[in-house]
Amino acid sequence: KTVKFDGLQFDFDNPEKALKFALEVAKQKGAEVHIHGDEIKIE
């Protein structure tokens, strides 16, 4: 899975870790997590 935000991109082999990371970043930024297939966007 790939996590994208602020023009940055982070690749994870483990989908659970990717989602956990995305949710943590979103919480800190006050943003929402959007999942599109293998891509997780924080907006």
Rank of each mutant, 00 (worst) to 15 (best):
F5Q: 04
K29D: 06
T2G: 04
K4A: 07
K29G: 07
F21Y: 09
V33D: 05
Q9T: 13
Q9M: 08
I42N: 03
D13C: 14
K1Q: 09
D6W: 08
K20R: 10
H36D: 13
E43S: 11
E24L: 00
D6A: 07
E32K: 13
E24Q: 06
L8D: 04
K1L: 13
K4D: 04
A26G: 01
H36G: 06
I42G: 02
G30R: 06
N14G: 04
K41G: 06
D38Q: 10
K1G: 05
K17P: 03
K20Q: 13
E24K: 01
G30T: 04
D11P: 08
K29P: 02
K17H: 12
Q28K: 10
K17Q: 13
T2D: 01
Q28H: 08
Q9W: 08
A26P: 00
K4S: 10
I40T: 04
G30I: 05
N14H: 06
H34D: 04
I40K: 01
D6E: 08
F10A: 01
I40C: 10
G7M: 03
A18E: 09
H36F: 12
G30C: 15
D38R: 10
K27W: 06
L8N: 07
E43L: 13
A26K: 00
E39Q: 08
H34C: 15
K1Y: 14
E32I: 13
F5G: 04
F5N: 04
A22K: 00
H36C: 15
Q9Y: 08
E39V: 14
H36W: 11
L23C: 15
D13Y: 04
K1N: 09
K27C: 15
V33R: 00
L19D: 08
F12K: 00
T2S: 09
A26V: 03
K17W: 12
K29R: 12
I42Q: 02
F21T: 15
E43R: 09
L8Q: 08
G30S: 06
G7I: 05
P15G: 10
E39I: 14
F10R: 01
G7F: 06
E39R: 03
G30F: 05
I40E: 01
P15Q: 09
L8S: 03
K20H: 10
K29I: 14
K4F: 13
P15A: 13
E39C: 15
F21R: 14
L23H: 12
L19E: 07
N14A: 06
K41Y: 15
I42D: 02
A22S: 00
E39Y: 11
D13M: 07
G7Y: 05
E24F: 00
K20S: 07
